[in-house]
Nucleic acid binder design. Structure first.
Length: 426
RNA sequence: GGAGUUGUAUCGAAGUGGUCAUAACGAGCCGCACUCGAAAUGCGGUAGUCCUCCGGGGCUCGUGGGUUCGAAUCCCACCAACUCCGCCA
């Protein structure tokens, strides 16, 4: 959510910034209209309420003095009716304004290049060199199926398309990757591990920006009005919702493993094979709550923490900065980490690291109290990044570490978790 | 799922229709005094939020409705916590 004051004071500037995302109708004009209408009604109703309060105090005094209050009470009834009508109008305008402003995306940071879509993304750096295969390499779904560690057919039987069953060393590999990532982030990067609920309420989904605009992308549990989390970002960021945090506690770094559930509405026909696009997948997420002036430095270190995973696994990747048109709804700036995927013949997104500035903090009401005496609470800046998507990491391992005989070498750092050096056919 | 109890500031807690929400009374915390220093004691201070013509005004007693001239207080719904029962891993 953008600051309504900022929209009021610099309407043209904010409008221009939001519209640099290029795609879609952002409805910021409606916000301005409703804000003006709201303030008009507010001034009127507050004047009437003040009168109501003043007159209301007279009644017990008059009664005590034995005076007749009939006339005054009749006047107040009329006043009260008028207030009721105006209050009704006010809350209708406020509801509409609230919905309207919740539907306006964040303003991109000044460094973000303007562009229509991912074709305008800028490559910032590359790490590692894609491997040259001297045999005919396979896509990860074939590697996994042939080794009998991934089973897409039986997953379809019990659930449907876009689900996977991991089996034997495949299941163990998934678990090893999760543990490796969590251990790295907690012991070397200063993150505190969180294991949150995988179902959340509407308020949490609104706090991080998934609602009200993207409800159709989520799995929903009508019985309790819960949503299956699309990412750990939702429960973990909302962990501190409605709080005023002591400045001394900042920055706060949380990391969490969770499964993620996505309806993948509108992506029919894309990435239909393999582990890349699933209704349910595992992810290790990193979330930061920081002071505003540090948030862009924190974005750099967050991205480096995610990159460290691929460096330890020794898999080539590159880092890109998303263009305005490719930027997520809540984000001001996003770096994507893309891993080398031989079967795609290109780099594929495996992590997304974003600075939301105060956009989520304002929605979820997450503030901190500056240490300086007498200072007012301010919104924190929130960030998050995948550290990493686990299914895609496993896919990248299977593809990049496959051998001519169909076996897969286990990356060095995962061997303590796996207990084997190679995943081979039985 | 059923029954009961509860929800007021950092915490405990009073207030049960108006003139005690500028939230009593405790506790904690921060200043100051006393002290060589500390403890004890005394004094003072210890929400948020919106609007503003910067004078001030409004809102918030779990949340949302209702009754009333007027609601923390009465009524309804919902949420959460606790106790007991049922169910369950």
């Amino acid at each position: 959510m953008l600051d309504i004051k900022r929209i009021r004071e610099d309407y043209e500037g904010v409008k221009k910034s939001v519209e640099s995302r290029l795609k879609g109708d952002f409805g910021i004009g409606r916000v301005k209209e409703l804000d003006e209408k709201r303030r008009e009604i507010l001034a009127e109703v507050e004047a009437l309420k003040n009168k109501q309060n003043q007159d209301s105090k007279l009644i017990p005094v008059m009664k005590k003095e034995g005076k007749d209050t009939t006339e005054l009470m009749a006047d107040m009834k009329a006043l009260s009716d008028k207030i009721k009508v105006l209050d009704g109008e006010l809350s209708a305008v406020e509801d509409e304004l609230h919905m309207a402003i919740l539907s306006v995306p964040n303003t991109p940071y000044k460094d973000v290049q303007v562009g229509e879509d991912d074709s305008a993304n800028v490559e910032l750096r590359k790490w590692g060199t894609p491997r040259e295969f001297d045999f005919e390499y396979k896509a990860h779904w074939d590697v996994g199926t042939d080794l009998d560690i991934l089973d897409f057919e039986r997953a379809a039987k019990i659930s449907g398309a876009r689900f996977t069953v991991y089996k034997g060393l495949g299941a163990k590999l998934e678990r090893a990757v999760i543990n490796f990532m969590l251990n790295l982030h907690t012991t070397e990067h200063g993150f505190t591990e969180i294991l949150p609920p995988f179902m959340v309420n509407r308020a949490a989904m609104t706090g991080t920006g998934q609602l009200p605009k993207f409800e159709e992308d989520m799995f929903y549990v009508p019985q309790k009005d819960f949503f299956l989390i699309p990412t750990a970002e939702v429960p973990v960021t909302n962990l501190r919702a409605q709080e005023i945090i002591d400045e001394a506690e900042l920055p706060i770094y949380y990391t969490a493993y969770t499964p993620c559930f996505r309806a993948e509405a509108g992506s029919a026909g894309r990435d239909t094979r393999g582990l890349i696009r699933q209704h349910q997948f595992n992810k290790v997420e990193m979330v930061k709550f920081v002071k505003p002036e540090t948030s862009y430095d924190e974005l750099e270190s967050l991205t480096l923490a995610a990159e460290a995973v691929l460096q330890r696994l020794e898999i080539p990747y590159r880092v890109v900065r998303l263009s305005t048109g490719d930027l997520g709804f809540s984000s001001a700036m996003t770096y994507d980490i893309e891993v080398w995927m031989p079967s795609y013949g290109r780099y594929v997104e495996i992590s997304s690291c974003s600075n939301f500035e105060s956009f989520q903090a304002r929605r979820a009401n997450i503030r901190f109290r500056p240490a300086e005496k007498g200072s007012k609470p301010e919104f924190v800046h929130t960030l998050n990044g995948s550290g990493l998507a686990v299914g895609r990491t496993v896919a990248a391992i299977l593809e990049n570490y496959q051998q001519a005989d169909g076996s897969v070498v286990v990356p060095e750092v995962l061997r303590p978790f796996m207990g084997v050096d190679v995943i081979a056919k039985k």
